[in-house]
Every structure is written in structure tokens, then in C-alpha cells.
Simulated scan of single mutants.
Amino acid sequence: MTDLKSLTDAIQSPALKAVFRHWLDVRGARTMPAWKDIDATVIGKYLPLVWAWRFDRAQGTFIGRLAGEEILAVLGKEIRGRPLEQCFPANAASVVLARYKAVIDGPQIMRTTGHVHMKTGRHGIGERIVLPLSEDGITGDGVLGATEYRLHMGDARTLGAAIDHHHEDITNYPLS
């Protein structure tokens, strides 16, 4: 775990940097912003890479809110209104659920690089950020994320040389 300044420095993708800056701007003095604070017009040019889930405490899972067109292309299905388990292969769903739950419970921000889609059965490299959301600014109730990826290793150079193309690196950044 490390601090938010080091996260700002670590993010390589300009799109992910813009989404993160917006999240920071709208959270203000709170630990986390609410879903209603996210302004699609501010991050509009990056919406194809953006996705969001709300946490349903009664069901103990995340329900899809939004997935941009590039995310839908990787998942192969719409997530809006669907439980996370219906959107990922069974072996990946438990991993994704645990990671997103850790983000809202921390609360913390998660950044991954490398084989960011390896667990879903798709292969490629990329960078992802997972940002917690909270209606009351205190208790996490959803996640906002953005993923920039390349499904073909030949395109990997566009994401920068620092990304390790052979595994997934996960770094958590606490908010407390």
C-alpha cells in the first residue's frame, strides 16, 4: 500500500489519469465521492474505457451500472443491471468480487498492470484503476473503474515500457 501522490505518478495512461483526476476533484473533502458526483461530460472522451458497479449488500455482490464500448468488447456482454457473476467466467468472478469488495471495504484504490484480463480468459496487457464510491462519503457502495488494454501483444508498446507483460501487478492505495 502506498499514497495517492505515488498513484498519480504511477498511472501511465492519459485516459486513466483523467478519470482519476475527476474522481479526486468530485470527492472534495470526503473519503469517496458518490456515483451521482461523477460527471460523464467531464470524462466523456474516456467513456469507452470506463465501467461502474454498485454493491448490493442484500445479495453480497456487485450489480453492473455502466460499461463503455471497449469494456463491452472484452466482456462480450452488457453488464447494466446484471450481477457480476453473470458477467465473468466463474473462476474470474470470485477474484473480481473479492478485489472490488476490498476496494470498497478499505476503502482503497486498486491499480493493476500487466495481464489485466488474464483471469477472465482473455489475453492481453493493460492498466486498470478501481476507485471506490460512496453515497454518504464514508461507507463504500460501488466502484468506478477504467481499463486501457491491448489484446494483442504487438500493441503493448503504446502503454509504455514499464508495464510487465507476463503477469498482473496489483498495487493498493489506502484512503484512510
Rank of each mutant, 00 (worst) to 15 (best):
Arg54His: 14
Asp105Thr: 15
Gly44Phe: 09
Asp56Leu: 03
Val103Ser: 08
Tyr100Arg: 13
Tyr46Cys: 02
Met118Asn: 07
Ala93Met: 08
Ala67Thr: 10
Gly64Trp: 04
Asp39Cys: 06
Val42His: 13
Glu85His: 13
Gly121Pro: 03
Ile43Ala: 07
Pro89Val: 12
Gly68Trp: 06
Val95His: 11
Lys36Pro: 00
Leu75Asn: 09
Met32Asn: 10
Asp37Trp: 11
Ala67Ile: 08
Gly106Asn: 06
Arg65Asp: 15
Phe88Tyr: 14
Gly64Lys: 02
Thr112Asn: 11
Arg65Tyr: 08
Gly76Asn: 05
Ser94Leu: 09
Ile109Lys: 06
Ala58Val: 10
Val116Thr: 14
Gly81Lys: 11
Met118Leu: 14
Glu70Ala: 15
Ala93Trp: 03
Arg65Ala: 11
Pro107Leu: 02
Pro89Asn: 03
Val50Met: 04
Glu70Leu: 12
Gly60Glu: 01
Asp37Gln: 11
Ala90Lys: 15
Thr112Tyr: 07
Gly121Ile: 03
Trp51Val: 04
Arg99Pro: 00
Gly76Tyr: 05
Gln108Pro: 03
Tyr100Thr: 00
Phe62His: 04
Thr112Met: 13
Thr120Cys: 09
Ile63Trp: 11
Ile63Leu: 14
Tyr46Asp: 13
Thr41Phe: 14
Gln59Gly: 12
Lys101Ile: 08
Pro89Leu: 05
Ala93Val: 08
Gly76Asp: 00
Pro33Tyr: 03
His117Tyr: 07
Ala67Leu: 05
Tyr100Lys: 09
Ile104Glu: 02
Arg111Ala: 13
Leu47Asn: 12
Thr31Trp: 06
Thr41Cys: 08
Phe62Met: 03
Glu70Arg: 15
Thr31Val: 14
Pro33Cys: 04
Thr41Ser: 14
Ala58Thr: 12
Val103Lys: 08
Tyr46Ser: 10
Ala102Arg: 15
Lys45Tyr: 02
Gly81Trp: 09
Pro107Ile: 07
Val42Gly: 02
Pro33Gln: 03
Leu75Tyr: 13
Val74Trp: 06
Asp56Arg: 11
Ala34Val: 07
Ala52Gln: 02
Leu84Met: 13
Val42Ser: 13
Thr41Trp: 10
Ser94Cys: 07
Leu66Thr: 12
Val96Leu: 04
Thr61Tyr: 03
Thr61Ala: 06
Val116Asn: 08
Ser94Thr: 15
Ala93Asn: 05
Glu70Tyr: 12
Glu78Leu: 09
Leu66Arg: 10
Leu97Asn: 10
Pro83Trp: 00
Gly121Arg: 07
Thr120Asn: 07
Lys45His: 09
Arg65Gln: 15
Gly76Ser: 03
Leu84Lys: 03
Gly106Gln: 05
Leu49Val: 10
Ile38Glu: 01
Gln59Trp: 00
Arg82Pro: 01
Val95Pro: 00
Phe88Gln: 00
Pro83Val: 04
Leu97Tyr: 08
Ala67Met: 06
Ala34His: 06
Ala34Asp: 04
Leu97Ser: 07
Pro89Cys: 05
Gly81Ala: 10
